[in-house]
Write a protein that binds this DNA or RNA. Sequence first.
RNA 1: GGCCCGUUCGUCUAGUGGUUAGGACUCUGGCCUCUCACGCCGGCAACAGGGGUUCGAAUCCCCUACGGGUCACCA
Length: 467
Amino acid sequence: MITTRFAPSPTGYLHIGGLRTALYSYLWARKNSGRFLLRIEDTDLKRNSAEAAKAIEEAFKWVGLTHDDEVIYQSQRFDLYKKYVTKLLDEGKAYYCYASKEELDTMREAQQAKKERPRYDGRYRDFTGTPPKGVDPVVRIKSPSNTKIEFEDGIKGVVSFNTDDILDDFIIARSDGTPTYNFVVAIDDALMGLSDVIRGDDHLSNTPKQIVVYEALGFDLPKFYHVPMILNPQGKKLSKRDGAMDVMEYKNMGYLPEAVLNFLIRLGWSHGDQEIFSFSEMLELFDPTNINKSASAYNPEKLEWLNAHYIKNSSWERIIEELKFFDLEIHGHDRKELIVDSLRERAKTIKEFADMARTMIETPQSYDQKAYNKFINQEAIEILKKYTAFINDYAEALHLPSGFEKATKQFMEQNSLKMKQLAQPIRIAMVGSAVSPSVYDVLSIVGRADIVIRIEKLINFYEEQNV
RNA sequence: GGCCCGUUCGUCUAGUGGUUAGGACUCUGGCCUCUCACGCCGGCAACAGGGGUUCGAAUCCCCUACGGGUCACCA
């Protein structure tokens, strides 16, 4: 059985890079009918873990990820960790260290002065004397020396470390009794039954320490996969200055969750030349073995393209639903469908979609200067006047774009006009600019009564300008 | 600085000893056209450098350069 986990430290929101490793872990577990667990790494009690967990659950919900079991909070498992500290102490695999901070600092400085690697020198490793008074000891684990620690990473291949290069007897419990990161991670991963640990590249050099803990405690090692980092568009480390770090920001910007997931799965992973992955295809095709070895810069244009793709291919009901988030409620079944179909190939985000829809729904309050200067002149005004009269007197009912097309063509024929002469003035009257969907669609969306109002408004504006 | 990891078009990537080095995004030329988009057809653009191994290397090995990660009583 495959069991994976996502184990963020509580920062208050779900990071975009975090979502990617969560997605990989999720997919790998679900694909294999396994379990995907969530654990909050809140051994540092200063942060608000309840709020952080809530933010993660919210983001998971938005993109459609679900985890099994209850969320595990490390802060609630201190008793458990303490038992393992005691166990190692009893077995002689760990020991109390009474070295003070000052003592350790001077030791470190001396080492650095000699250009040596700063490391704990093991001075209390075999200590049997009387402990110094007034020092709360830390607990250190006995690390192996003069050997190698190797493991097969599912992404990087065999990774090998010389213990003397990287290890010392590191602290597993602080002087206040609280356990440290590398200790609890190993315990929890083992106790939670993880078979596969998929996590960020930045943990690669923690892995040997965790292996020391696994071995001291007699736990089986999981398979590790260290996923390379996501870089900003400039190829540098992602930081808060790069904008959207919080997954929920993407919702605010009008991105669809399926676009975000598709973007993320493809960033550092591939399946041949395929670019578009539905959720079920992700489930079917994902395999952590072909995650790329190197870091990848995220490029906003591709996300945008993906988002546009999903907008184009969403049902109109879905888009109407999404538009509500941007305070846009559209009434009328035909009108909803028409608005969506006229804009779905034009909007890159739902936010843009809402903005464009508003230009058709609401009477323009001003006119785009350039477009107005270019297309609105005495001749255009005369045409618009005639057109208003024509629409007013038109005998048949006018609802659908096809009806407006038929009527407008008749009008053009009667007046020997070409579409080119008519389209832009009408467009400016309807939406205030020279850019919109097909005029027939716009006309149909605006509706017969408002068409007349909007044209008259433009005419009035023109005449006031030219008194 | 030590250790670890990495390096194919600007970006995401395919490629696992023999390819005109493929696709996608971006940019760009054209077609379509009532504008803008969409769509379609085309274009620009890459194996970090140097040594080996081999009949033959983007692919295997070594070195260099560059980038990243990590070295806490943070996680």
